[in-house]
Write a protein that binds this DNA or RNA. Structure first.
Lengths: 225, 225
DNA sequence: GTCTATAATTAGATAGAC
DNA sequence: GTCTATCTAATTATAGAC
């Protein structure tokens, strides 16, 4: 009646693992049991697809394969569920994005590789949808937007900025600003090509962007002289 | 009973002026009469604020100061109104953005100025909201996203790319890709600082970005040597 | 054309059985 | 804790008076 059997799959995960301070202090936003996991899985599909206002709790329930009341017994309301979901997805995504170890290696090797890895991570549909939703709801949920800025943008910029600073031969006067240019060019590429469907009308090879970008930072004139 | 007096303000504008092929072939998306103008003004405030699904027709009617039925007599449905509105705002914004004349002048003068002008245009709240909404609804309304890509992104990239190509002393092997880097860095700055509210947690001076960006394109090593 | 009033449907959230 | 059934409010869209 109380404890259902066979939940070893999620039970093996320790409950308290958070690395970032989240909004709802009372409840853990990460998966706690199988039912919450199931709800969040369903919620992810529909919320990333339809956004906050465009998704009904009925659809969430259907996608998760549970009743609405079950959702409301695990999350306070629609807003609480949405916030918990986006926090989770954002943090999950970027615990993997960059490891804790700083970047190292020859710039001519590292920078193109970094760009390729970045594109690889950002090119899957789930991540594109996440980006779209975070921007879409940044008016209604500014805290989620700021979480993304801190956990992802600021983090990436800091790591690459430190790398630039550790390479005096690159002669970069403002490493942080240059890191912004690097990632900003990549993000805006994803934005115009994938999020805004520009690749269907104006496809551009990502290699062209990477080559030009790396050339600018390394040896802007070496290519043609 | 039929023709209300004193509409000279909007009447002075010719009805057929479209420069881009729009989705609804039957009806002109630009302002046709005072009532449509009034509806679109109200719709702009609430749709840019709440997005498509997050805005009710009641709120549009209230914001425009008309009844719902009046809206439905001018636009087919909520979707038609939204599409007409976003098409209009997008095109209006960027008939002014770049003039038809190509860029010219010394790169060291032109590029910083171009960046400053770009920031000035993009920094007002209305434009930030437009950007947010277009990205937000790019899943539901891919045609609107593609209109934005063509009318704005592709256009800007082409103009700056042509300028780069006309300046062989810059030694730019891929002008188009470099133009993407230029505007992409600026857009992603607006995105992280304004749209995602990053300026409240990680403010960065836009002058730092402009300086680094221009330095990269012009004389990457000149600053410190 | 424009408004008020109203249909028909769907939304978020809860009650009560098990 | 979970489900079915239900309540109330809000939503899109339309009918009918003027």
């Amino acid at each position: 009646m109380s404890i259902p059997p066979s939940e070893s799959l999620t039970e093996s995960m320790p409950e308290q693992d958070r690395l970032v301070t989240l909004s709802n202090g009372t409840e853990n936003s990460f998966a706690v049991n199988a039912k919450q996991e199931q709800i969040l899985q369903g919620a992810m599909r529909v919320f990333l697809q339809g956004g906050y206002a465009g998704t009904s709790m009925d659809r969430v329930a259907a996608a998760a394969g549970v009743s609405k009341q079950t959702i409301y017994s695990h999350f306070q309301d629609k807003e609480g569920l949405f916030v918990a979901l986006i926090e989770r997805v954002t943090i999950r995504k970027f615990l993997i994005e960059f490891g804790p170890e700083p970047l190292q290696g020859e710039p001519a090797i590292l920078l193109p590789k970094l760009a390729e890895v970045f594109f690889a991570k950002m090119s899957d549909q789930e991540y594109i949808s996440l980006l779209r939703v975070i921007i879409a709801e940044s008016g209604r949920f500014p805290e989620l937007a700021q979480l993304y800025v801190r956990a992802v943008i600021q983090r990436g910029r800091g790591i690459l900025g430190s790398y630039f600073a550790s390479r005096p031969e690159l002669n970069i006067s403002d490493p942080e600003a240059t890191a912004h240019i690097f990632f900003g060019s990549l993000v805006s590429f994803i934005l115009s090509q994938e999020v805004l469907h520009g690749k269907h009308t104006t496809p551009i090879e990502k290699e062209r962007l990477i080559t030009s970008l790396v050339n600018l930072i390394l040896e802007p004139r070496a290519a043609s002289r």
